[in-house]
Design a protein around this nucleic acid. Structure first.
Length: 575
RNA sequence: UGGGGUGUCGCCAAGUUGGUAAGGCACGGGAUUUUGAUUCCCGCAUUCCUAGGUUCGAGUCCUAGCACCCCAGCCA
């Protein structure tokens, strides 16, 4: 597969930075998820960018949990996130937490106070909102804005000591209440939350805000390029303001607590650059909606194969390489864009076509009997596992006169252009030879229950007659040796391109695709027995399938359809 | 009506110091094919949000508009 390098503005920027010798040519990035939910395809775009840039420029990428809000975060997610990142194919240079730097954040807070650049504010959340002004009107200064440095320091220390109630006070940056950028109207830096933290327990009762913690974390870790999504664009002045005031690279006292803990990092001044988040059509990506789908039982959990979560994609059978090329192929820009699902499918097929061994399976069986072979005839055929990759070798496939074919490969009254089996017509049975439909057996209700066919033995593989052309080739499975399996046929979860659009009064819930999951019992060729979970194959003419990561066992095989094959016949028939 | 962004083919997206519109997906046509798969050809923006301007020459520069996205959490 071609993971060709696509040029984008971030790559160009990094190249330019290196060309002028910034950071000595060093590239250090980070992926900073908040551990409050499962990773989804959108996160994968950011993961691919951050880890990808580090990889391409011989740099490093840290995995940093942005755990600054203990009220919303949970340890459950930190392991799942690590699994997902590894599964995607990336390894971090360092596994870190924003909470590793709590002492540094605190020291930075004292430094800002000492510089007269931060103050303790007693305003309630409601009052702060009232003082903030609006988009078009400036805010007003807090009555606590001019407290003395000594008083601020004392108050801040007492906040840390737990002397005040939740929400009673905040530490605020002293910037400009009249700034046209609302993020600069004395933003809160610290809030009081007497909540136990998953990492630091009850050591702290004041917790830093994102804008404050994030830039300091980046600087402390020596991040060179802090890549984030568009909505943080107007936070960048605050990011820069904090780092300008703090001068973390040169003020070693600020990072002393880390060295005492044995964490040796070289701080540097990072720059934030924003790119458009990854949107995909026919799905929803917001945390809120994803949670609702799970909690309301609309899907079978976070790793439901229809979910856009990485654990869902994995269970669906998407190869991680396909997700990586997908985002690389979309590229990175600043345009709010939604990419079509077909691009993802194309990436999945591209990887799978190259890698997946081929097998025969019938999902909607119609029995057929080869009448010119003795009923007890048994034979072992040899099939190649891949039409273009000989290295994948061959396998043995049992054959007998009693077979199953796909019900839709037979038509009593064929539509025009039908290349399959019809009464009196011929078709090739894959790897067997050409058969003619001699007789159609029906039950009392008139349903076709069986076909009786004759095999032209001169067309068997290896014989000159095998060259004879027939319009169609269909797949089959030997009824005597086939194994039964549960096969889950998945399709997109929503039936409209933009389920988020509720302008017509309908919500994403109204657009769930009722056919997104269909379970059938299928017959698989015998070689598919005793398979490990997460094994991917192409079932010829049907699509790509994977043995389910959790439910599949040798005794009770369970397969998920990853994606169908491209089907120009079905497409033409539809139009 | 404040601030920050973005507007190149149906969907993404390249477009070097202005030199005469890459690529992918989708779509249409054809060839090969014991998967109507794969592969392979061919086609697919006289035009770059609009209108002016500068220039021998503009998607790239200037001016004026228009459209869309983000921001008023002690969330991230």
């Amino acid at each position: 597969m071609s993971e060709s390098v696509v040029n984008h503005f971030i790559r160009s920027m990094i190249e330019a930075d290196r060309a002028r010798g910034a950071h000595g040519g060093r590239v250090a990035t980070r992926f900073p998820p908040e551990p409050n939910g499962y990773l989804h395809l959108g996160h994968a775009k950011s993961i691919c960018l951050n880890f990808g840039m580090a990889r391409d420029f011989g740099g490093t990428c840290n995995l940093r949990f942005d755990d600054t809000n203990p009220a919303k975060e949970d340890i459950e997610y930190v392991n799942a996130i690590q699994d997902d990142v590894r599964w995607l194919g990336f390894e971090w240079a360092n596994l870190l937490h924003a909470s590793d730097y709590f002492e540094v954040f605190y020291l930075c807070g004292e430094k800002l106070i000492q510089q007269g650049l931060a103050y303790v504010c007693d305003l309630s959340a409601d009052d702060v909102r009232a003082y903030r002004g609006t988009l078009t009107e400036p805010g007003r200064n807090s009555p606590f804005r001019e407290r003395s440095m000594e008083e601020n320091l004392d108050l801040f220390r007492r906040m840390r000591a737990g002397e005040f109630d939740d929400g009673a006070r905040t530490l605020r940056a002293k910037i400009d209440m009249a700034s046209p950028n609302i993020n600069l109207r004395d933003p809160a830096l610290y809030r009081i939350r007497k909540v136990s933290h998953q990492n630091t327990g009850d050591t702290w009762c004041i917790y830093p805000m994102y804008d404050y913690a994030h830039c300091i974390s980046d600087a402390v870790e020596g991040i060179t390029h802090s890549l984030c999504t568009l909505e943080f664009e107007d936070h960048r002045p605050l990011y820069d303001w904090c780092l300008d005031q703090l001068d973390i690279e040169h003020d070693l006292a600020l990072t002393a607590p880390l060295r005492e803990k044995g964490l040796h990092m070289t701080p540097s001044r990072s720059r934030q650059t924003e790119f458009a988040r990854g949107n995909l059509d026919y799905t929803v990506m917001s945390k809120r909606k994803l949670i609702a789908l799970v909690q309301d039982g609309l899907v079978d959990g976070w790793n439901d194969p229809r979910m856009p979560t990485l654990s869902g994609a994995r269970r669906r059978g998407f190869p991680p390489a396909a997700i990586r090329t997908f985002w690389e192929r979309m590229g990175y820009s600043k345009q709010v864009a939604t990419i079509e699902y077909s691009v993802l499918e194309a990436c999945v097929r591209e990887v799978l076509d190259a890698e997946a061994s081929r097998r025969l399976a019938v999902l909607d069986p119609l029995p057929i009997e080869i009448i010119n072979l003795p009923a007890e005839h048994r034979e072992t055929l040899r099939f190649s596992n891949h039409p273009k990759d000989e290295a994948q070798g061959t396998r043995e496939v049992p054959f007998s006169p009693r077979l199953y074919i796909e019900r839709e490969d037979f038509a009593e009254v064929p539509p025009k252009g039908f290349h399959r089996l019809v009464p009196g017509g011929e078709v090739r049975l894959r790897g067997v030879g050409i058969v003619r439909c001699e007789d159609v057996v029906k039950n009392d209700a008139g349903d076709v229950t069986e076909l009786r066919v004759s095999l032209d033995t001169s067309t068997r593989p290896g014989l000159p007659g095998a060259e004879r052309k027939v319009k169609g080739t269909i797949h089959w499975v030997c009824a005597h040796s086939a194994i039964e399996a549960e096969v889950r046929l998945y399709d997109r979860l929503f039936d409209v391109p933009n389920p988020d659009d509720d302008s017509d009064g309908k919500t994403y819930r109204d657009h769930l695709n009722p056919g997104s999951k269909r379970i059938v019992r299928g017959y698989l060729e015998a070689s598919l027995a005793n398979l490990a979970a997460e094994s991917r194959f192409q079932f010829e003419r049907l699509g790509y399938f994977v043995s389910d990561r959790f439910d599949h066992t040798a005794e009770k095989p369970v397969f998920n359809r990853i994606v169908t094959l491209r089907d120009s016949y079905a497409k033409a028939a539809k139009s």
